[in-house]
Design a protein around this nucleic acid. Structure first.
Lengths: 245, 245
DNA sequence: CCAAAAGTGTTTTGGGTACACCCATGA
DNA sequence: TCATGGGTGTACCCAAAACACTTTTGG
């Protein structure tokens, strides 16, 4: 769509309401066509790509801020959000890119502008339903869209490092979380679930072993058969016993 | 000892050099007499207990800041330091305790004092050699000492929650790190190493299984026998093959 | 010789992988 | 009936746990 909805800030931000020097960045994972997708936004007219991020309000819990940022960028609420690291590299203090953004947008600023300071980034990752996301650009960015994780545009500052660390955490925690819950349809075949796991982990898994492990985990409930129209036995479809978050 | 050494700041801090709103807290684990110890400092004349913490200089890498803070509080360098979480609860904005500290110390301040703002805390944990630590109080605190992790004093703000999360991370990562390297003497018996693991994990471990696993890990080198003076076979002593950090 | 703790060999178990085989389906 | 992919039983491997046994030491 691209239309501005009322919950998303259309007015210039009042920087006084925000904690200086602290940003929140989100690595938002989606899944489509056996590809792991990441949500990336592009700043207006500048050709600068970045993870969707935001800032911490002075009266706001850190976790709430992450949820709000995610909501403002994707319209999604109550998503599984995981804080995984805080980045504080001095390279983050490179004001070049943001300088460009402000200049290209004819926004007045001096060197003490809120956006031109050093930030440390408290970073979260989220798994969201690819199909339910309506990426909408905000006042500073003119595009917000999914990129295949293998073909990301060059990202500003250390955002690529942030993405890599998020992926590392996602891979390490894949067994402890119900990964498919937000990344697949309500019902899915075992092969579809396995494809998702293989995409995230970046490696092939044993088919029968995967099948057995998933069934023994108790996370799955088997429903009826699915007609594929293909020349082979029709697979069962499954759903997660846990409710969608 | 308690004497001020030259590397520790004796002068009032120049708050201009520091990032506002960002603190660094360290959960420093030691080990002694089958007890897990935590380093806690007490603010002068106020009866307020806190984790040793500090602030991030504007020109400083986050990780370097954590190392510096640890150094200033314990005199230890180059310790295994692990960032595990960033805490941002609004309760952290409770200025009561710090207000008390400043007042009791007759330090001039107004409500915009650096220490009286909301902080988010980037938190690290470290494993240090109990015996090599010379806890020295700094300008704001009048004691800095080890506490048994089961008998901590009431800690300010959310510091107890920080400690609990650090312990959780320590337990989860115990297999992936050479836990005893800084927590035991240079040489130790297998039983002493097992005692350490059991103390950290808070549960009994199988003796023979532990023995075998440790030997197979390749982390240990067996040295000579140790005379215990007890009425039983004398154990071997071991050391880590990896160098002390 | 006994008790206590250390060290080690043997057995059992359980999870993971590999492989074989059957099943269902449409061409 | 063949090819294809889904589901399941069986065999095997390896690491961890459980157990038994021996060794060493001081009393």
């Amino acid at each position: 769509m691209g239309t501005m909805t009322d919950h998303r800030p259309a007015e210039p931000m009042n920087w006084e309401l925000y904690m200086p020097g602290i940003s929140i960045d989100c690595v938002i994972f989606g899944y489509h066509n056996k590809e792991l997708k990441i949500l990336i936004l592009e700043y207006k007219k500048s050709g600068i790509f970045a993870l969707p991020g935001g800032f911490l309000r002075k009266d706001e819990e850190l976790k709430d801020a992450a949820k709000r940022v995610l909501f403002e960028r994707t319209g999604l609420r109550d998503i599984y959000l995981n804080q995984f690291h805080t980045f504080g590299s001095l390279k983050r203090g490179d004001i070049g890119p943001m300088h460009t953004v402000l200049r290209k947008n004819n926004m007045p600023f001096d060197n003490r502008h809120f956006l031109l300071q050093r930030f440390i980034s408290v970073s979260y990752y989220a798994l969201v339903d690819f199909k339910q996301v309506d990426p909408v650009a905000d006042i500073l960015s003119d595009s917000c869209q999914w990129y295949d994780s293998h073909h990301l545009p060059p990202l500003m500052l250390d955002h690529h490092e942030i993405f890599e660390k998020a992926l590392e955490h996602l891979r390490n925690n894949i067994d402890r979380s119900v990964v498919g819950l937000n990344l697949l349809d309500d019902t899915f075949t075992m092969r579809e679930l396995q494809n998702l796991y293989e995409t995230i982990l970046g490696e092939k898994l044993n088919r029968t072993g995967f099948h057995r492990k998933m069934m023994l985990s108790g996370q799955l409930k088997r429903l009826g058969k699915k007609k594929t129209g293909k020349a082979h036995r029709s697979p069962f479809v499954y759903k997660f016993t846990e409710e969608k978050k």
